[in-house]
Amino acid sequence: QWLFVCLFVLLLGIVSQGIAGENQPVVTLMTHDSFAVSKHLLETFEKQYGVTLKILKTGDAGLAVNQAILSKSNPLSDVFFGVDNTFMSRALTAGIFETYASPKLSKIPETLKLDPENRLLPVDFGDVCLNYDKNWFIDKKMLPPQTLEDLLKPEYKSLTVVQNPATSSPGLAFLLSTIGKYGEKGYLEFWRKLRANDVYVSTGWSDAYYGQFTRAKGGTRPIVVSYASSPSAEVYYSDKPLDEAPTAAVLGPAMAFRQIEFVGILKGTKQPDLARKLVDSC
């Protein structure tokens, strides 16, 4: 009988916890496929505010922004993370974000604050540039590219993968870097030559880096558009300890584009207070 009472109390506690979890408010964060955050941070936010945090990934940054715009009359989430300065004007013109002057703005450099109305708040930045697989070039006894012009040379034919600028934020950033280097009249000629040299245009960063790049299983392209921080990330996230990065970034004048990433509260959110708390936590 005592055992039955203990089991009943234990079962009642489990059911009560389940009901409490079901009754918790849900706040949804819409973002791109490359978004990553530790389980500990998610659980800390949920515990601190007594909520369930749902992460909704909707493709590369450009696709995610388009999805948020298309669903603005019935928003899919409360907060959007991952609009960058290349897609910023598209998002702001669509009018999908609410103004929110977070108290955390005082800690952010003025150079990163690109929206004076505070509809989009900067959360991080990175430099988009070419990366290459060091071992591939060592094995082939070839010099890695040092300039954009190198990509047009016959010896680099079929070696480069970039992202579609219509759907990918690093793809659009790379396109803008070529406009910055060659000007509005010259960049198209560069791209014509790059296309003639068999550049591969991927749908997004994940497919390019984890699918087409030679660092990925089955990848055939040793040059990829990624970030200046990608070599460090290779070391940090490696399953096995590495003494040095297996990749390198190609850096130099007019070789990189500073990408700033933003977070914003979507108009029509049903959880405005929690949405603000989530933005403050980013």
Results as ranks from 00 to 15, higher is better:
L130Q: 02
K104Y: 06
D243I: 10
L7H: 03
T99A: 07
K267T: 15
G211I: 04
D139G: 12
Y209F: 15
D139S: 14
K277P: 07
L105N: 01
V79H: 01
L188G: 09
I179A: 03
S202H: 01
G183P: 06
P170R: 02
I223S: 05
D280E: 05
T178Y: 08
E155W: 10
V37F: 15
D239Y: 12
V225C: 09
K185P: 00
A254C: 11
E184M: 04
P222S: 13
R276A: 07
V250T: 09
T269K: 01
E261N: 02
Y227S: 13
I19Y: 13
R276M: 11
L130P: 04
R195S: 11
S34K: 04
L278I: 10
K193V: 03
S34Q: 08
K153L: 13
R192P: 02
A216T: 02
K193L: 07
F87E: 12
E244I: 09
N131Y: 14
V199Q: 00
A173H: 03
L70S: 04
P241C: 06
D115V: 03
S232A: 14
N85C: 00
T247Y: 06
F81K: 01
E46G: 13
E234G: 14
L7N: 02
P154C: 13
L148C: 06
K141A: 10
E46F: 12
T220A: 10
R195P: 00
I179R: 03
T44W: 03
N66G: 11
R195E: 12
P154Y: 01
N164P: 10
A68R: 00
Q17K: 05
S73V: 11
A20S: 06
V225F: 00
F80G: 14
K153E: 07
R258Q: 05
T93I: 09
D243S: 12
L41W: 08
E98T: 02
S73W: 09
Q48I: 08
L11K: 03
I260Y: 06
M142K: 07
Y182G: 13
V37H: 10
L3M: 14
A254Q: 15
N74R: 10
I14W: 11
V15S: 03
T86D: 06
V51S: 14
I96Y: 14
T203G: 09
L105D: 00
K277V: 05
L152P: 08
P222K: 02
A173F: 01
A254L: 11
S106V: 11
M142R: 15
V83E: 11
V26N: 00
V51C: 10
V128L: 04
V51F: 09
Y209S: 00
E46V: 14
F174V: 11
K72G: 02
S229I: 11
A275S: 15
A101G: 08
P170G: 03
G183Q: 04
L151Y: 08
T58P: 01
D273G: 05
F262H: 12
G204L: 04
L251R: 09
A249D: 07
Y227P: 07
S229E: 04
L172V: 00
S73E: 15
L56P: 07
I19K: 14
D133K: 12
W205N: 08
S168T: 01
S281T: 12
Q24N: 10
L12M: 13
T214F: 06
L120Y: 06
S232L: 14
S71D: 05
K113M: 03
A248S: 14
N164V: 13
D150H: 10
P222M: 05
G183N: 07
M30P: 08
